[in-house]
Design a protein around this nucleic acid. Structure first.
Lengths: 347, 347
DNA sequence: AGCGTGCGTTGAAACCTTTCAATGTCGAGG
DNA sequence: CCTCGACATTGAAAGGTTTCAACGCACGCT
């Protein structure tokens, strides 16, 4: 045996075993080795065993780059999320990953962090990688980019938004319904002065949930809605919004807070507790998303559950359809949110 | 012009522009196009401008697969984390990503979810991708795999562990010190019956933090430590542990809980609040990691901060060193944790 | 005029896998 | 005995980039 199986050459430098090496060592052609790898049923069982043995012995590992080059496409799918640190997105990504895994497609995750420069860098990367599909929650003005990418044959699905809905399929959750569920729940619990906390105003999510809240209020008697706009949607924003609300006169002060997401709600909860207000007795709080931390807050948080993993799974499903047949009709899956009642809105 | 710039062929199928196409359109050789892309200073300014113009016009995008094939290596780095849903890990990944980004190296993130089969799948993927480096927080028995990967010339750094420390560099945080800080803080606050909640026992992290707690107790008078072992380290485990503790007789019941991580601490906090115990008056709670949600818990959680992003940055730094020179000496960076006091241990 | 130098550009080779038309072999049926 | 078909295997071509030795040209120096 002239080849060493420890993967090292005498000089210590790395070496790579190719199909050619395997073929030579096994005494077959490269075509047969490739068949062993990709269409084992076409190979005589004896040959198959022998070649597999040699592969194992030499420690052969397929070179994915060569494979992709030949195939013209990367099997992987790229996904660009707004914020890996928000559990909402990691849960969605989890759903995507599971669906793709079943088809043996890796997921390459990129985090834009709401920064359109980073978003653009990831788009470059994914284009150069020739990924088969792209899932994106857009930040910047990427429509032209997305068109170009799609025109080159890459499947594109928009997640948690409906940007360019005439051109791209999307998956989202019904924000009006979610808003109605939350608002109605507060009203049914006897709350009359509702503060809607979140922003920025421009976000469709915020717009729709707020509109639904106002509809519910209009359909009831004596219910007021106050909108407290914030620049971001994190815990800090919630804390600051509460300070603002507590500064109000007693009769204007809300008896319920509807936060645009759970991070904001958690911040609000903390602000209220610190200020000595009782939740839910003095102020009820309901969040949105139902991330894991909502249930484990010290006062468990009522919320509107978005089917996060299903959202990811649905996105993956459409994407796979489009990859299989680029002529697939444009489709918009809209999932239903669900009210989750916990202590923060009791009584 | 015979080439269409919309990226579509008459039949609607995707087309890809190669360096060859660019060279032909620009009237230069492929070598020159490559120089424009990789060593622009070697190219006559006039030629450079002209070729760049053509690239833009044709919408040429480098094919990364071919590039990798030629280079024998993928510039990307692979990282396998235990749990993307634990903010601790996303923060570490964030640190890694930022450091790598400066060197224009993409990060491919894999989530083992503490499952050694999935861990193994990702190792396969990364090997086939010929990633230049691998960052891993190991789950299963992967040492032989890691050795093989390293012997093939891939840099390997172990994160948040010290597995196979003779063979692989690592980055971790000083768990004994962290344990001491937390325990001493509780003792200084007058607490005498400390419950350490976490597990499984086999984890080095747990072992070291517990041992440190016991040392602190031994050095004080009248301090007892009780170990409540859990199978996992999530909020649910914290809730269950509290049920167990509350079932104890009044004199045995702890007046402080030291949770092995913040998820457990948040669960414990919730359990106590629901059962009507006051935090921190009746029971103090301190967590570990200082994830963002610790500060925004309704009763802000004291914790031991792990420098998460620095941990990632340090790991990336070592990895880049090893990639640059595989003969780099094995190194173990140990970072220092820091006590963060909040309301949950006040008084 | 002749020679050498330096610079910009060229073009073929190499990287590794997959595909597919062609080749070879064996057995059954006429 | 010959033919045909079925089946297993072969080997060359293709895919796009980078590298590098070689080439050609202009300019300066002798």
């Amino acid at each position: 045996m002239s080849t060493r199986s420890d993967g090292l050459r005498p000089d210590g430098a790395a070496r790579h075993v190719s199909v050619k090496d395997v073929a030579a060592a096994a005494g077959v052609s490269v075509g047969t080795v490739s068949n062993v790898l990709n269409r084992p049923e076409k190979v005589l069982p004896a040959t198959l065993q022998h070649v597999l043995g040699v592969i194992d012995e030499l420690g052969f590992v397929r070179n994915d780059a060569a494979r992709q080059l030949r195939a013209g496409r990367n099997r992987a799918v790229g996904m660009i999320v707004l914020d890996v640190r928000n559990p909402f997105f990691t849960d969605v990504a989890q759903g995507v990953e599971e669906s793709l895994g079943r088809e043996r497609r890796p997921l390459i995750l990129g985090n834009s962090g709401q920064d359109s420069a980073r978003e653009s860098t990831y788009l470059d990367l994914f284009e150069e990688q020739r990924v088969s599909g792209l899932l994106i929650t857009p930040v910047g003005q990427v429509l032209p980019r997305l068109r170009r990418i799609r025109d080159r044959g890459t499947a594109v699905v928009v997640v948690d938004r409906k940007v360019g809905s005439r051109e791209f399929s999307s998956v989202s959750v019904d924000d009006r319904l979610g808003g109605r569920l939350a608002a109605q729940h507060l009203v049914d619990g006897g709350r009359r002065r509702i503060a809607f906390v979140g922003g920025p105003r421009g976000l469709n999510q915020v717009k729709h949930r707020l509109a639904a809240t106002e509809e519910v209020a209009a359909a009831s008697t004596g219910v007021q809605v106050r909108f407290v706009e914030t620049a971001t949607m994190d815990a800090d924003a919630g804390r600051r919004a509460v300070d603002e609300l507590l500064a109000l006169g007693k009769r204007e002060r809300p008896d319920a807070i509807f936060a645009a997401n759970d991070l904001v709600a958690l911040g609000a909860l903390q602000g209220l507790t610190l200020a000595g207000a009782r939740v839910p007795e003095d102020v009820a709080i309901i969040g949105y998303d139902d991330i894991g931390f909502a249930a484990s807050a010290a006062i468990p948080l009522s919320s509107v559950r978005q089917p996060r993993e299903e959202l990811g799974a649905a996105a993956a499903r459409i994407l796979l359809d489009v990859i299989a047949d680029p002529a697939t009709k444009i489709r918009h899956d809209v999932l239903e949110p669900e009210l989750v009642v916990r202590r923060s809105t009791a009584g």
